[in-house]
C-alpha cells in the first residue's frame, strides 16, 4: 500500500464562465481519517464476530474495510483530463 494521497488538484472551467481551481490538502484530513478508520475497524470487528457467531456465511467486513483503505491509498498518481469546447475538467491526485 502506498502513502495515501496528499493533495487533490481539481480544475473545472467553462469558456467565458466561472472556473473552479482547487488545491485540496488531503493530508490535513489524515488524522481525522485515521480516527474514523479506527472506530470503523472496531465496529467491523464486532459485526464480523457477531455474524460468525450467528453462523452467517459472509463475515468479512473488516477485510473489506482494509481493502477499501488500500484502494484509497492507491489513488495517488491518478490523472483525469477532459477537455471539450464547453468545459475543461482536470482531476489530479498527488
Amino acid at each position: 500500500m502506498n502513502v495515501p494521497p496528499a493533495i487533490l488538484h481539481l480544475v473545472v472551467a467553462r469558456p467565458g464562465g466561472h472556473s473552479v481551481r482547487l488545491w485540496l490538502p488531503l493530508f490535513l484530513l489524515w488524522p481525522l481519517a485515521l480516527a474514523l478508520g479506527v472506530v470503523a475497524l472496531l465496529i467491523t470487528i464486532i459485526v464480523d464476530v457477531v455474524l460468525l457467531l450467528l453462523g452467517r456465511r459472509y463475515c468479512r467486513y473488516t477485510v473489506l474495510l482494509a481493502r477499501m483503505c488500500a484502494l484509497f491509498g492507491e489513488t495517488r498518481g491518478m490523472d483525469i483530463r477532459i477537455n471539450s469546447e464547453q468545459e475543461t475538467f482536470n482531476l489530479t491526485v498527488y
Binding site: 481493502r67 492507491e74 483525469i80
Partner: peptide, 17 residues
C-alpha cells in the same frame, strides 16, 4: 471535434479495485 479525454490510472489501483 477537438474533445479530448486523457485518463491515467495507477495499475495498483486497478488491481486493488
Amino acid at each position: 471535434t477537438g474533445d479530448n479525454v486523457h485518463v491515467k490510472v495507477p495499475i495498483a489501483l486497478v488491481r486493488s479495485g
